[in-house]
Design a protein around this nucleic acid. Structure first.
Lengths: 296, 296
DNA sequence: CGGTATTTTGAACTATCTCAACTGGGGTGG
DNA sequence: CCACCCCAGTTGAGATAGTTCAAAATACCG
């Protein structure tokens, strides 16, 4: 079913150089088990818009994302797509619980995927009690992540949702001067993720630019201009309340919400090292930008 | 902190007659463990609008809902409340992972809660490998539930969201003629859950009545008039998804296969036996209705 | 280059929100 | 027992954020 999948030849020690070997499920296994699994796993490449698992079809396997971004998509009967969640390197594609996919998994960027044999999970946990604990932690974290993501959409208008999302993607304050990020998602995908139309996303993006919070170097390259202002855009639009909330509200957000929120949808934008982007700006050839994207 | 909490005297065999003893976490323990836990657990009663755990405060314990509905509430910077999720009998209040509450847990109805000692969970799973599997299943289901709930809000207008929610609360097609349900949530809470204002909820509720899908016997008592029409109003984005939700939700609820699986949005309305509601309609005195509510 | 897909802009339209007033049940105190 | 108040629920009318449809501008690719 994955039309553009490109199966790679399997090597026993494939995992050794895998970038995902220390993250997520791959780190749960004991060394011997790891080798066994390495033998039975297969790798696939998916091109940007291809489907990995299709809603409604029967799945018999799960995969680990080695690189790239994967969308969890809900298709309604009008043909509309709803981007529910984004998955990053190290996270799991597919649903270990049910055999029939409730959603589709699609490649948002180019995706390198490592398929594990169907029974891997249960086998690993059977022999390795510690894997249980890890799996539990991972799931608990996922629940949290979902709750925070959901919370981030509530009671906010479009501009606030966008600003909030941008803030979450940004590198920390300590990053060197020209903070830049590449939006790896299409407008369509990002709009769907943030619960708005492409048109609204567009307007709101330029609104954030007009208000001096960011600059759009190219449609998919964002430069941070004024972090406090962006932070302001992400919060309450009500000016009267804004004042009072700058004291109390801030503490609130910082204390209870921020830690887990920051962990949330990172990497939908990817931070691009200044060294690589400078020349791209000097001569904004698009081939250059594509190269950068491949490198990162 | 729970102002209205009424601690009950502790009895060693308290669990024996507990309605939650076979659901959720309580079913995970081995008999001996169960007794040990029974000794160390405490019960509290919470009145409808009281807080059980407060966002931002440190929690050192988790509780099992014996009866009643508990809201997971997010307080944003403006002081607005956002109802993220509802929890039912047998489900867990509090977050086993982190010590500081990211959300508030509040009683939506009268709530009977059983507090477990902090280390209960880890202790149970340490001695009982099967508990791990159960915990995993419960969590996986919770992830599912969240995704479905989120999906149900997407790309739908207010009327569709309400109709969809009503459908999920309804007893199965096979139920006897006058299908009635009591809305246990206030308009405010339900509106928050469905992402709309109270006013919109009200209009949309009466819109569903005008279109002949339901009838509002009293503000909080709904009678199903025309299920297909209601389904039409919900304009289900994906038939398959809808079916999965309905089928699984009910089976799970009825048979209590996997404890946490009953977690579905069910029971925000409560199905009222016709025998009890008939007299209430004949003479719609509110005292009568209150009695019914207490009984159910 | 020329063609196609994506992004951006424009303008009319509409669902939902906001504010404000009204209702009716039911609890309270005289 | 009545008069009163209070609060959840309801209804109405104006304001508006966001959608929809349509078209221009720009990016992308052979």
């Amino acid at each position: 079913m994955p039309i553009s999948a490109v199966p790679r030849f399997g090597a026993p020690d494939r995992c050794r150089h895998c970038t995902a070997r220390n993250t997520g499920i791959c780190a749960w296994f004991a060394p011997e088990e790891g080798r066994e699994i390495a033998h039975r796993s297969t790798r696939s490449l998916f091109s940007p818009r291809s489907q990995i698992l299709v809603q409604g079809e029967v799945q018999d396997r799960i995969g680990v994302i080695v690189s790239g971004l994967v969308k969890i998509v809900l298709n309604d009967e009008r043909g509309e797509e709803h981007l529910l969640q984004l998955l990053h390197a190290g996270e799991i594609v597919g649903d270990p619980l049910s055999s029939e996919c409730a959603f589709s998994w699609e490649a948002a960027t180019e995706v390198d995927l490592c398929w594990l044999p169907p029974s891997t999970l249960s086998a690993a946990t059977r022999h390795n009690p510690e894997a249980y604990q890890r799996q539990l932690d991972a799931l608990l974290w996922q629940v949290h992540e979902q709750q925070f993501a959901q919370a981030a959409l509530r009671g906010r208008n479009s501009l606030q949702r966008l600003a909030n999302w941008l803030l979450l993607q940004l590198p920390p304050e300590t990053a060197p001067a020209p903070v830049r990020m590449r939006i790896l998602l299409t407008r369509r995908d990002l709009a769907s993720l943030l619960e708005m139309t492409v048109e609204t996303l567009c307007r709101v993006l330029h609104q954030a630019e007009e208000r001096g919070a960011i600059r759009l170097v190219t449609p998919d390259l964002v430069e941070l201009r004024d972090r406090p202002r962006l932070r302001l855009l992400a919060r309450s639009p009500d000016r009267r309340l804004q004042q009072t909330l700058l004291r109390d509200g801030w503490e609130w957000g910082a204390r209870s919400l921020a830690p887990a929120l920051r962990a949330m949808p990172r990497a939908k934008l990817t931070c691009v090292p200044p060294a690589l982007t400078e020349p791209a700006e000097a001569e904004p050839g698009l081939t250059r930008i594509k190269d950068v994207r491949r490198v990162s």
